[in-house]
Each structure stands twice: as structure tokens, then as C-alpha cells.
Amino acid sequence: MEDWFKQFIILWSVIDPIGTVPVFLAVTAGLGSPSLSRKLALKAVLISAIVLLFFVIAGEYLLNEMGIPLEAFQIAGGLVLFLFALTMIFGESKPDEEMGIVQKGMHGAVFPLAIPSIASPGAMMAAVLLTDNNRFSVMHQFVTTMVMLSVLFVTFILMLLATRIQKVIGVAGASVISRVMGLILAAVAVNSILTGIQQYFDLHTAVSVSSPAMGL
């Protein structure tokens, strides 16, 4: 039970259902139709689920085949997440790139809503790390996958309620939330980068120390 709760906390943090609400409000601001907004939310969650399930099933295999250590993936994911956070903090209420996508309607479900808001680099990384074949059994990986899907379901529910939230907080409130979440996201990204760097050097230091000993 404790492991399930820990997994839920980790996946909740990296997927960040609450932080997705301002992004969803920005993407759906020009749609004008509640039904289209619901379809966009469903599409975004389904795309995110497919992407994250892909990393659960094949992420570790692909990284191993390409010779990419998990630490490098973690650092790269943190950098991408940090750049996205900067656009939330210093950009306009809708960055110019996102404005072009919003004007295209349902395409906003893919970017920036599904990727990188819901299926963020951190979420992809967590999907790989929490289903490591060398550390976790098939049953454990199945439970982790179910926990991940439950967080995605909560994200979908919050997006359905986003219109009501918007009526309460208004455009200015959504902008404030977006920037605050951007700041939190930046901190998470920096922590991801620092952790990846630390783990990388710890691993290589351990290897370099053990190599002479093996020679002896």
C-alpha cells in the first residue's frame, strides 16, 4: 500500500493535473464550444496515455538499444521542462507559438496540452524509471501503470471542470496560476537536472573506483 501511495505521489507530481488546468484554459480559450473543449480534453488525455504507455512498454528497451543512460534522459527531460516553464513565467498569457496552435483548434490537444503539459518529459522519465525491468516484477509494473492511468483520469476530470474554475478566477487568475505553476515547474526541472547529473557522476565514479580493484 505504501508503494502504491509513493507511486501516486510521484506520478501526480510529474503529470501535475492541477498545473494542466491553466494550459487547458489557454488552449481552449478560442474554441467557444463546451463540447469541443470536452473532445479536446479527451483527445489530450488519450494521446498522453498512449505516449506514457509506450514509454512503460518500450522506453527502457529503446534507451538501452541506443546506449543512452537513464541519467542522460533525465537531464534532457529536465532541460526541456525548464524551457517550457520559462515560457509560462516570462511569456505572454499565450506564447506566440501556442497562439498559432490554438487558432488551429483541436491541434492544441497534442501540443502544448498532451505534450509537454500532461505527458511531460518528467512523466516519460517516471514511466521508465518506475517500470524498470531489473527492479520491478510484472505485477508491480502493472500496478504502476494503473496508478498512472488513474492520475490521467483525474487530469481529465479537472479539465472538464476548468470552465467553472475559469468563471471563478477569471483570465487574470488563470495567468497568475500559470506563472506560479511555471515557477514550480522550473524548480522541478532544475531538481531533475541536478539529480540526473549527480546520479551520472556517482555511477561513473563507482565504476572507475571498482575497475582498479578488479584488476588487483
Rank of each mutant, 00 (worst) to 15 (best):
E2G: 07
W4C: 13
Q7E: 15
L11D: 00
I15D: 02
I18N: 06
I18M: 09
F24E: 00
T28S: 12
A29H: 10
G30P: 03
L31Q: 13
L31Y: 10
S35G: 09
S37R: 13
A44G: 05
V45K: 00
S48D: 00
F54M: 13
I57V: 12
I57D: 02
E60Y: 06
L62R: 02
I68K: 05
V80L: 15
L81R: 03
F84C: 12
F84A: 15
L86C: 12
S93L: 06
P95W: 01
E97L: 08
G100K: 06
K104E: 14
G108P: 00
A109E: 00
A109G: 03
L113Y: 02
A114V: 02
P116Y: 01
P121T: 08
M124Q: 08
M125R: 08
V128A: 06
L130A: 01
L130S: 03
S137K: 03
V138M: 14
H140Y: 14
F142R: 05
V143G: 07
T145M: 14
M148L: 15
I157V: 12
T163M: 11
Q166Y: 15
I169E: 06
G170Y: 04
A172T: 10
G173S: 05
V176H: 09
S178P: 03
G182H: 02
A189G: 02
I197L: 15
Q198Y: 13
A206N: 11
